[in-house]
Design a protein around this nucleic acid. Structure first.
Lengths: 127, 127
DNA sequence: CTTGTTAATGCGACAAATTTGCATTAACTT
DNA sequence: AAGTTAATGCAAATTTGTCGCATTAACAAG
């Protein structure tokens, strides 16, 4: 089951590469030049996550956001950085500072989802 | 618009007080002795959050979980502790260790949602 | 270049979680 | 005891994401 290259797929990947923040399905849809079906966008994004190209962030609103892994290689993924979710403009951006959170003995941590929500610089000033 | 005391309301609050982990609407519903309408449960929980009695956690599954504020007073809320969300038994529990996450200058952080997901002790052993 | 295989897409339907409008009930004030 | 209106129940709507299935098209092989 090897992957095939399609226009929609590379367009989405390009979007995520260029974006300085994480995107949800809506954002991807509206930023694409051509119209791509909703399920297709979800499938593309999920495929990226599966392949480790992109990581999934659950926003403060419970929605899924996707961001290109910048410093991740195929071997080592570190999605251990916090995100800032602006409640006003809805931007979700990755903060650089990685962090480690201890769990009680016997627990097996797998994923980390850290979201600070509030107002980003722009929205904080315009209010 | 003052609050009124109702049986459902205090039952839900009691549940949250007794619970050692955060609960979502389903969990609240099935643990209540009497049947309470779904929307009502949501409204009760949202009211609690609004009043600062309870804090809302967005789980790894995008669902809303609610936990009683234990060390919070009306004045000072600190929901700055991480949560552990077991992907197997779905338990969401508060970890004690509080943490502080820096945001870029000009940003106004308000809420913090930190969730480590994986397998809790019980589920880790039974697998 | 043509052809076959099957991954990717589009579409509609479905599912789950949460919210909302509205009529009814019941808490609390006077 | 009576009036005001917060809280509830119910049904319907919304939102977000997934799934089945038929169709399209990417890519490998001849």
């Amino acid at each position: 089951m090897s992957r095939r290259n399609t226009a929609s797929q590379s367009a989405v990947l390009q979007l995520l590469r260029e974006s300085d923040c994480a995107l949800n399905q809506d954002m991807v849809a509206e930023r694409l030049d051509s119209v791509v079906n909703r399920s297709t966008i979800y499938r593309i994004l999920n495929r990226f996550v599966e392949d480790g190209l992109v990581h999934r962030i659950v926003g403060e609103d419970g929605r899924q956001y996707f961001a290109k892994c910048s410093d991740c290689t195929a071997e080592a993924h570190h999605h251990d950085h916090p995100h800032f979710h602006c409640v006003s403009c809805e931007r979700v951006e990755c903060l650089s500072e990685p962090l480690r959170i201890g769990v009680p003995a016997g627990y097996l941590p797998q994923q980390l989802n850290v979201t600070v929500s509030g107002y980003c610089r722009d929205c904080n000033q315009n209010s």
